[in-house]
């Protein structure tokens, strides 16, 4: 019973109208599709949260993929599409962090670690040469 029901759900959530559904189907142009996939890999599904929209079965992830493909097909750059989604859902939706003062630490902390390490190492190497 349960199984029948689930299969029915699988099959009936279909959108019977669309001939081509960009939520689930690729763009015709391979270069555009590649750009869209790369972008979709770096966008967070807003209901399942841990997953990128490219790998999520949620309805809204499909809706987001449709928007991404349509906008890429219309000639927008991936970063413009990312911006479009960030305007609506905030920075959380993008796995690629937006560079702004609050996120500078993401680059400054490793840089500081690298510099500190290099200072420690170089001091030692100079010492060794005495």
């Amino acid at each position: 019973m349960m199984r029948r029901l689930l299969l029915a759900i699988f099959l009936l959530t279909a959108a019977p109208l669309a001939a081509q559904d960009y939520a689930h189907e690729a763009l015709a142009d391979p270069a555009q599709e590649a750009a869209a996939i790369e972008l979709m890999d770096s966008l967070r599904c807003v209901v399942c949260q841990g997953q990128p929209i490219s790998g999520s079965n949620a309805d809204i992830a499909g809706d987001m993929r449709r928007i991404v493909r349509e906008r890429i097909a219309a000639g927008e750059t991936p970063e413009q599409v990312r911006e479009w989604l960030i305007t609506r859902y905030g920075d959380f939706v993008s796995f690629k962090p937006v560079v702004k003062p609050a996120t500078w630490g993401l680059w400054l902390v490793p840089l500081a670690a690298l510099l500190l390490g290099l200072v420690l190492v170089s001091r030692r190497v100079r010492l060794r040469r005495n």
């Binding site: 890999d41 770096s42 990128p52 920075d91 796995f95 690629k96 962090p97 996120t103 993401l106």
Partner: peptide
């Protein structure tokens, strides 16, 4: 840093960000 930064930022000022593969 990348793993914990979102947590730290959210605690600091409530801002939610994601840090992932890119």
């Amino acid at each position: 840093c990348g793993t914990l930064y979102p947590l730290a930022l959210e605690l600091a000022n409530g801002e939610k960000i994601s840090v992932g593969a890119p």
